[in-house]
Amino acid sequence: MPDVAPELVTAATAIVAAVRGRRPLVHRIGPGVTAPIVANGLLAAGARPLVTDTADEAPALVRAADALVVGTGSLSGDARAGIPPTVAAARDAGVPWVLDPAAIGVAPVRTRLAHDLLRQGPAVVRGNASELLVLGSGGSGGRGADAVHDPEDALEAAREVARRSGAVVAVSGAVDVVTDGDRVVRVEHGSPLLARVTGTGCLLAALVGACLAVAPEDPVAATLAATWWLTLAAEDADPLGSRTPVGPGTFSVRLLDALDRFEPTSLAELTEGNRER
C-alpha cells in the first residue's frame, strides 16, 4: 500500500488550522460519564462544546451549532427522546452531523436507534469494530463499549455502511481505518492508554464534528484530521522511551495538554504509519 495521498495531508493541515481559527460550536448529545473529557478536549482543541440532550431544548439549540455529534452510549430517557428531533432539526438547518453508535449490539433500544439514525444522513459514522459490524452485517456487538473485534475484521462492514449511508466511516482501534466505501486509509498512531481512559472514543467523535464543521465539503479529510490530531496527541502524551511510566490518570491530563499544543504544521511530515489503498 502506498503512503497516504499528499493532498489529504494538506487538506487535514488546513482543517486543523481552521478549527483553531474559527472555534466551531459542536453540539454533542452523548453519555454523561464522558462529558468532561469531551467538553475539555474540544476546548483544548480550540472548539466550543454545547451539551444539551432534551427534546425541549436540543432541537432549537442545534440550529445555532456548527456541527452535531450524536452518541448512543449510556442512553438516558432524555437523550432517547431528544435525539430524533435534534437530528431532524440539524438536517433542516444544514448542520453536518456525526453518528457515534456506542455500545450497540446487545442493548436493544440503542441498537434500533442507531440503525434508524444511519438512515438519516450522517456525514460521518465513528465507532469501534464491533459496533460497525452491528451496523454493517448484523453482528452481535462487543461487551458494552468494549470492542471484541479488530478494525480489519470490520473493514468490509465499514465499507458497506459507507456505501449504503453515503457517510464516511471511521473504525477506531490499534490501527484506525477511515473509508468512504471505496478509498481506505489506515492510521497507525496512538497509545494503548487511549483504551484505558473513559471517553476517548467519544472525544474522537467530537473532534470529527469540530473538523467537519469547518470542512463539511470534505468529510474524508475532516475525519482524518481529527483522527491524526487525537492519535498524535496521544503519542505526545505517552512518549515512547520515557523513563517515567505514564498511567491512565496522568495520560488523560497530558492528552488535553497535547491537544492544546498540537501544531497543524506537524501533519505535513506524516508518512510512516499512514497507508492508503
Rank of each mutant, 00 (worst) to 15 (best):
V148G: 14
H149G: 01
H149S: 14
H149W: 06
D150Q: 11
E152A: 14
E152R: 11
E152H: 10
D153E: 14
D153G: 07
D153Q: 09
A154T: 03
A154L: 08
L155Q: 11
L155F: 06
L155K: 08
E156Q: 15
E156C: 07
A157N: 09
A157E: 08
A157I: 14
A157H: 12
A158C: 13
A158M: 13
R159D: 00
R159A: 07
R159C: 07
E160T: 15
E160W: 14
V161C: 10
V161M: 09
A162P: 03
A162Q: 09
R163H: 11
R163T: 13
R163A: 15
R163L: 15
R164L: 05
R164Q: 07
S165C: 01
S165H: 07
G166N: 12
A167V: 04
V168A: 10
V168H: 10
V169F: 11
V169C: 01
V169H: 06
A170S: 12
A170I: 00
A170N: 04
V171K: 03
V171H: 05
V171G: 06
V171W: 08
V171C: 09
V171T: 10
V171E: 04
S172A: 15
G173C: 14
G173I: 11
G173E: 07
G173F: 09
G173M: 11
A174Y: 06
A174N: 09
A174Q: 13
V175M: 04
V175L: 00
D176T: 07
D176V: 04
V177W: 00
V177M: 10
V178N: 13
V178W: 13
V178D: 11
V178C: 12
T179W: 15
T179I: 14
T179C: 13
G181N: 12
G181K: 09
R183W: 12
V184I: 14
V184P: 05
V184W: 09
V185K: 04
V185A: 05
V185N: 06
V185W: 08
R186S: 14
V187Q: 12
V187K: 10
V187H: 11
H189S: 02
H189K: 01
G190S: 11
G190L: 08
S191M: 08
S191A: 03
P192R: 00
L193M: 08
L193E: 02
L193P: 01
L194R: 06
A195Q: 08
A195D: 07
R196S: 12
R196N: 07
R196Y: 03
V197H: 01
V197Q: 02
V197L: 01
V197Y: 02
T198K: 02
G199Q: 04
T200L: 01
T200C: 01
G201Q: 02
C202I: 10
C202E: 04
L203R: 04
L203N: 00
L203I: 04
A205N: 04
A206K: 04
A206R: 03
A206Y: 06
A206G: 00
L207A: 12
L207Q: 12
L207Y: 13
